[in-house]
């Protein structure tokens, strides 16, 4: 059932990435994201949704998650994005997954709800680490720049 929830997001990745891209581009809380090329913003979101199982089932504290998200944090610093808007975008990426699951109404039986509790654990563990390492990458790049 956990796999079913993950697969449902992966199958809807294209539509979901399009929806979130449009939302972020018009959200007054994230004006800087409007400067990203449509394709770049779409692909950044699509990368998470289309391979959600890959990201969620990894050990988020080791390996690729720290490396990938620290690099994104440093890159967003160089590009001049305010950190809180980057964090806002990651939170919105997570929230859209949860909203989609609620919308599809696939949490009715005890078995489905039990899997949802596992899903919440994996989803939050991944996004907490993604936000933490993005912040770390951004913060380190900021310090390096001030020192130079």
């Amino acid at each position: 059932m956990l796999v079913k929830l993950i697969e449902m997001i992966e199958k809807n990745a294209e539509t979901m990435a399009g929806e979130l891209k449009s939302r972020l581009q018009t959200d007054p809380a994230t004006p800087s994201l409007q400067t990203l090329d449509d394709r770049v913003l779409y692909e950044d979101i699509f990368e998470v949704y289309s391979r959600l199982g890959y990201w969620l089932l990894k050990d988020a504290e080791k390996g690729e998650v720290p490396v990938h998200y620290s690099a994104i944090g440093a890159q967003r610093f160089r590009e001049g994005f305010p950190l809180h808007q980057v964090v806002h975008a990651l939170v919105a990426t997570k929230r859209h997954i949860w909203d989609t699951i609620l919308e599809k109404g696939i949490m009715r039986t005890a078995k489905e709800l039990d899997s949802a509790v596992d899903f919440i654990t994996y989803l939050n563990r991944f996004f907490d680490m993604a936000i933490y390492y993005t912040t770390l990458g951004y913060y380190r790049a900021l310090n390096l720049k001030s020192a130079s």
């Binding site: 004006p31 809180h84 808007q85």
Partner: peptide, 26 residues
């Protein structure tokens, strides 16, 4: 989510006040 977002905003505000750092797209 709110706590993390607003802690970041408060911290960035101080970075600007104390170090004059402001992200260019701000």
């Amino acid at each position: 989510d709110h706590a993390v977002l607003h802690v970041t905003e408060g911290y960035e505000e101080m970075l600007q006040i104390e170090h004059g750092y402001e992200a260019s797209l701000s």
